[in-house]
Design a protein around this nucleic acid. Structure first.
Length: 618
RNA sequence: GGGGCGGUAGCUCAAUUGGUUAGAGUACCGGACUGUCGAUCCGGUGGUUGCGGGUUCGAGUCCCGUCCGCCUCGCCA
């Protein structure tokens, strides 16, 4: 075989006159009879080959070249020369061409179901996933893989420089059925028992801290058997880390340094100091725990004002949980969103649609008012609930700093429903107003934000039980510890008010990392388990190894996990997570290329002591 | 588990209100062609309209079921 001397992206006019060998795929062919052009492609680029009788090339080489088709794999030898037909400015190698003297066809292809061409419209994703090896040949997919690789390298270098050890943790892990559903793995050795695939290496990395490893990192696969979304796969990758002898500020500094390094390396962008926002502010002003700060729309709780209006819908809602504390999830609230310039841009059709939109989040509807220019030149309330607001007009306008041309949208419901609904509405309105900048990868801003001071616990709305908002190993914030230890498990108001030492990094409205200071005290950990409704026996059954580890000298420690797939998505500018994973799965967790998951023979099931309730379809 | 969109030639799409033999571009096959670069020109092959049932004189089109893909709510400690 003619082993390559160069890649297809390498040759320039500096190499003119040299004899070279290239290997690659036929990207396209232009056959003029005796004169044949082939664009040869590999990962590095495209180089034009030319077969011409004048060069004295053997007859059979021309004849073989005549039969080449897209995606055949070939090796050639020839001479580099300046193109006779003029430069092709679209190619990096566009100044030169290879006059071929020898040709080896390394592999003929069947007619491919599609061509790996970024210039033409892509076939549907199902076909791309079925023949992933062809799809991955596309230059843009090669770029994704290279970007991902660069992130791995930058990550390892940064954490190595900061004394982190890369340590592998088990994939076959103990089932701890809390949080996400787990993938189970039966075992031949112990009949009737199962491993689970880890949702994350959380407990192993904490135990590595107890083990004296001090600083740990791993680029690890995590598994959650939950329905996917455009930005979520059941199998995904985290950059996982943990540090000993730090409090919140030190690990946040380490994370911020990593983000700064990553963006510098991958985009050249200097990440400015990242601002902090507490969870309550995020929920109050953005209606979501990961605010998109690229546009300045804010939501506001106007319950107190709304109570003064003679408007039945608001009055009814505000009766709910009237005497409960401000953030009680079932307390009735009225939330408002002032949209500057909305009076013109948010048409009746759009605002009518908002009611349907918020219904999707459980809210009843959206009330609307426009502030237009009155006959006296001053602001005038128009349409929607204008007549109910009219008696309190001055106070209303002042409350939201309204100006002529604004539209104000209202959602009245329980605290949790109204907050979620208006938060989602805020994002939809921003899109409708056309004020959402492009993502950073497309030249838009990179807006980073810390979100901190999350509640430790929230009530599950179905069971009424407490659940950990982050996870059950998250510590209360230092100044909350005493209050937490003193709190009675039934003291709902106090428990609800405990703030954790958790922190998230949000980028353009998307969570890219999350972590917390961990509990390193056995008694604190036991109290959390108790609060979550676990008996001491249950806690021991599930987490005895953790509680024991915490009993034998556990250092204070804290950690974080970055969602690697989402980082790649940001750098390559896609909102489809499957585009950044070499071999992704579909909505039902299928790998269309390998046809996993699949039925297995009964004999194989018997080995692992399993009997299936389902049979393969005939 | 719920809601929505989609599935027609290898691929991307079209097909009037339910009405003739389901078309076009591209790929592929054959032919012509010595400077192309999305080569061009001429000719040709190619269809279980995802699958199963139903309504109808007649179904790609309407109805029911089902499979697959995507988006989304729930879910994702």
């Amino acid at each position: 075989m003619l082993i390559r001397s160069h890649t297809c992206g390498q040759l320039r006019d500096a190499q003119v006159g040299q004899t070279v060998r290239l290997n690659g795929w036929v990207n396209s062919y232009r056959d003029h009879g005796e004169l044949i052009f082939i664009d040869l492609r590999d990962r590095y680029g495209i180089t034009q080959l030319v077969f011409e009788p004048e060069s004295g090339v053997a007859r059979d080489v021309i004849e073989a070249a005549d039969k080449l088709r897209n995606e055949d794999v070939v090796a050639v030898e020839g001479t580099v020369r300046v193109r006779i037909g003029g430069e092709n400015p679209k190619l990096a190698t566009g100044k030169i061409e290879i006059v071929v003297t020898k040709l080896e066809v390394l592999a003929k292809t069947d007619n491919p179901p599609f061509l790996p061409d970024d210039m033409v419209k892509l076939p549907n994703e199902e076909l791309r996933l079925t023949h992933r090896y062809i799809d991955l040949r596309r230059p843009s997919m090669q770029k994704v893989l290279a970007t991902r690789h660069k992130i791995y390298q930058t990550t390892r270098k940064y954490f190595d420089e900061n004394s982190f050890l890369e340590i592998e943790t088990p994939i076959l892990y103990k089932s701890t059925p809390e949080g996400a559903r787990e993938f189970l793995v039966p075992t031949r050795q112990v009949p009737g028992s199962f491993y689970a695939l880890p949702q994350s290496p959380q407990l192993f990395k904490q135990i590595l801290m107890v083990s004296g490893c001090d600083r740990y990192m791993q680029i690890c696969r995590c598994f959650r058997d939950e329905d996917p979304r455009a930005d979520r796969q059941a199998e995904f990758t985290q950059i996982d880390l943990e540090m000993s002898f730090v409090r919140r500020d030190q690990i946040m500094e380490m994370m911020e340094g990593f983000v700064r390094r990553l963006w510098k390396e991958l985009t050249g962008f200097d990440v400015p100091p990242i601002q902090r926002m507490d969870y309550r502010t995020a929920m109050e002003e953005y209606g979501i725990d990961r605010p998109d700060t690229r546009y300045d729309l804010r939501t506001k709780d106007i319950s107190e004002f709304a109570g003064k209006l003679d408007f039945g819908v608001f009055k009814t809602v505000l009766e709910k949980g009237k005497d409960r504390p401000k953030y009680y999830s079932k307390k009735g609230v009225v939330k408002a969103l002032r949209v500057p310039g909305g009076a013109e841009k948010l048409t009746r059709k759009l605002t009518d649609g908002y009611t349907e939109f918020v219904k999707g989040f459980g809210a009843g509807g959206v009330a609307v008012v426009k502030i237009i220019k009155g006959e006296d030149g001053g602001p005038k309330l128009d349409t929607g609930i204008a007549k109910f607001l009219e008696p309190m007009k001055a106070e209303f306008l002042a409350l939201l700093n309204c100006e002529i041309g604004d539209t104000v949208l209202f959602v009245a419901d329980t605290y949790s429903v109204a907050t979620k609904a208006i938060g989602e509405l805020r994002q939809k309105v921003a899109r409708d107003m056309g004020i959402v900048p492009k993502p950073g990868a497309e030249g838009g801003p990179w807006n980073f934000l810390w979100v901190v001071d999350f509640p430790m616990f929230e009530k599950n709305k179905d069971t009424g039980k407490w659940v950990a908002m982050h996870h059950p190993f998250t510590s209360p914030r230092d100044d909350q510890m005493q209050a937490f230890l003193n709190a009675d498990v039934d003291d709902e108001v106090t428990i609800e008010g405990i703030v954790s030492a958790g922190y998230d990094i949000v980028l353009n409205g998307q969570e890219i990392a999350g972590g917390s200071v961990r509990i390193h005290d056995r008694d604190v950990q036991s109290k959390v388990f108790k609060l979550l409704g676990m008996t001491p026996e249950q806690a021991k059954e599930k987490f005895s190894f953790l509680l024991e580890a915490l009993s034998f000298g556990a250092p204070p420690h804290a950690g974080v996990a970055f969602g690697l797939d989402r980082l790649v998505m940001n750098f390559v500018g896609t909102d489809n997570i499957r585009d950044v994973i070499a071999f992704p799965k579909t909505q039902i967790g299928a790998d269309l290329m390998t046809r996993a998951p699949s039925f297995v023979p009964d004999t194989q099931l018997k080995d692992v002591h399993i009997k299936s309730l389902e049979q393969p379809k005939a």
